[in-house]
């Protein structure tokens, strides 16, 4: 009998099929609010370089509740994205010591430590220069 293999097509909504895929899509989607927040900052820089009125308009817009909520979403998205990448560190950059590898949790905790250090440094910088 001749062969007649059946070739299936992956469903268009494969990313809704399990929790793992949904979290993956959420990770990828974090790029949208983060990119928009970056554009907002570029707008601020352009306003600063432009004129005093432009800067005042931008600074004024930042206090709008919608912009505040949007920035909070962007921060949450960036934190979630960081979490996924910190968890990827032991997979992508394993550190071998003799016959064993540095435990994954150690590397992840070190990444969060560095994250916290940069955060504190930024807060201090703002407090000093503000």
């Amino acid at each position: 009998m001749s062969r007649k293999p059946y070739v299936a097509k992956q469903s268009a909504n494969w990313y809704l099929q399990n929790r793992f895929f949904k979290l993956y899509m959420l990770r990828e989607l974090t790029s949208v609010p983060v990119a928009l927040a970056a554009l907002n900052l570029f707008w601020g820089l352009a306003a600063l370089a432009g004129s005093a009125e432009a800067w005042a308009a931008w600074a004024g817009a930042q206090t709008h509740p919608l912009v505040v909520v949007f920035n909070l979403i962007a921060i949450a998205a960036a934190c979630f994205n960081s979490k996924t990448w910190f968890e990827a560190i032991p997979k992508a950059m394993p550190i071998q010591k003799g016959e064993t590898f540095v435990p994954a949790q150690k590397l992840i905790r070190a990444a969060w430590g560095a994250f916290a250090a940069v955060f504190v440094l930024l807060v201090l910088t703002v407090l000093i220069f503000a």
Partner: peptide
């Protein structure tokens, strides 16, 4: 694109 589900289902923990 580093979905990562391949490592999740691997029965031998190959990652």
């Amino acid at each position: 694109t580093f979905v990562g589900y391949c490592s999740e289902v691997c029965p031998k923990h190959v990652d």
